[in-house]
Computed example of a mutant assay.
Amino acid sequence: MAIEAFAPALETFQRGRDFSAWLGLVPRQHSSGGKQRLGRTSKMGQRDIRRLLISGAMSIIRWKGRNGGKPGSWLARMLPNKPRMVVAIALANKLARIVWAVMTRKEVYRDPAGAVC
């Protein structure tokens, strides 16, 4: 509901990364000469939706983090190697891209064999 209320029409974004960047969930790029340099997350986007996605990601991490998630899943590989907040931002980014794809294609979400959790 918050995305429909606060975000512009999702069809205005060409891809999920553009929507995620509008929310402020992707790293800043300082790239030149073909060399990619990624910085901190920009936090320049819509604050309310970003907070909701991050708090949802933190609850998924808390719930799945108890047993480490499904073995071999993206979350299970990230949790032992990265700080929890970094994983939460990455998961919120992933969730924003999923939301964009589901809402622009007007489909029901099908989890491809535990891709997220």
Rank of each mutant, 00 (worst) to 15 (best):
Y109F: 14
R50Y: 09
I54H: 08
R110C: 12
I61H: 05
I98M: 07
M58H: 09
D18W: 01
R51D: 01
W74P: 07
G45C: 02
W100V: 06
M85H: 15
V87A: 09
V86C: 05
G24N: 10
G69L: 00
A115F: 12
W63H: 12
M58S: 05
I49N: 02
Q46H: 15
L25Y: 01
E107I: 15
G65V: 02
V116Y: 11
I49Y: 05
K94G: 08
A90M: 02
S32M: 11
A96D: 06
V116S: 15
R17Q: 13
G16T: 00
P71M: 05
L79C: 09
A115R: 15
A96C: 12
T12K: 14
R17V: 03
K106Q: 11
E4G: 11
R84S: 09
R110A: 14
V99S: 07
A88Q: 07
R66C: 10
V87E: 01
P8D: 13
R40Q: 10
T104H: 07
K43I: 14
I98H: 04
R66S: 12
A115G: 07
W63T: 15
V86D: 14
I49K: 03
E107A: 14
R51Q: 09
V26H: 01
L25C: 02
L91C: 10
I54C: 13
A92Q: 06
Q29A: 11
S31H: 11
P112M: 06
S20E: 02
M1G: 13
M78C: 10
S31V: 08
L91S: 07
L79F: 09
M58A: 05
R110I: 12
S59P: 00
